[in-house]
Design a protein around this nucleic acid. Structure first.
Lengths: 155, 155
DNA sequence: TATTGTTATACTCTATAACTATA
DNA sequence: TATAGTTATAGAGTATAACAATA
């Protein structure tokens, strides 16, 4: 199994990620939002965040890092920050209809681009690639790390 | 085709990349080299680089960015920089036997970790995932960008 | 003059640590 | 006292531009 020569996974995924992000940039710019803003909106599509910290963790960011982004999005009317009546330290973050609409528009355009790239892959391979990617990236971070660290006990 | 809901490719690959890089760090540190140093050594395994600029481009870096890395690797006896006799502006960069040995050791350890992670995938899916990743990351950057930008003219 | 390797500077991004308010 | 949100500061990482050597 290990005598098959291949580049490291990290090298390949980083390379791919860079190309994908570079392709996203003009789309995002055309809609007047940043990559982080898009990440925030996408995280809110599935439902409100009970606090800004929870929201930050959900997108792999620090709580301090998303504050300017939240300010901008709120000013643009794309999300709301409402103090939690039960604990006024917390702010529930909710996407607005305008925010949802923008996210959907950007998402559709980005995924259209991605599909164009994926046409290089034969249909079956493309299907399995997407499934594998979803499966791996759906793992909790801790699980991913554990699996990576646990090399040697390969069953 | 486009009514299948999935996260953006970039979101998934970036997430994966971060986990993979985090797992590589302790391995690299244990061998006394950085991520960029490992990238340089890996790029040289297949053969010498005709110039530092060529080498930099091969790993997606700027020519100025890898100079401290090259200094360190040379001092560690892991690569050689030899002025090209035909054009003394150029420096041919070659990996040394020690460098090759180190790269192989690190690579083996990293890929053992990666294999452990990939065991979550059914065998067929894992095979297609690796094949797809190699196919996509083997595309020249320009091709990748073109394919991404060219959404709509899907042939 | 144009290009490689090098260095130095400026800029962006990120992480850390204080500060305010609520509990 | 502990925690959420905020702000400010410091640090790492990156990009840009200038410089010396060679063509």
């Amino acid at each position: 199994m290990s005598d098959v020569v291949r580049p490291d996974l990290a090298a390949m995924t980083v390379r791919l990620s860079r190309a994908l992000m570079a392709a996203e940039e003009p789309v995002l710019a055309a809609h007047g939002i940043t990559m982080w803003a898009y990440a925030v909106l996408t995280a809110l599509v599935g439902g409100p965040a009970s606090s800004q910290q929870v929201l930050a963790e959900r997108i792999g960011a620090d709580k301090t890092r998303i504050i300017p982004t939240l300010d901008a999005l709120q000013q643009q009317g794309l999300l709301d920050r409402v103090p939690d009546p039960e604990d006024r330290r917390l702010r529930t973050v909710t996407i607005t209809p305008a925010g949802r609409q923008l996210q959907q528009a950007v998402c559709a355009q980005i995924q259209r681009q991605e599909e164009a790239m994926l046409t290089v892959l034969p249909p079956a391979r493309r299907r399995e690639f997407l499934a594998a990617l979803q499966q791996l990236s759906a793992l909790p971070s801790a699980d991913l790390v554990d699996r990576l660290r646990g090399a040697g006990h390969v069953g």
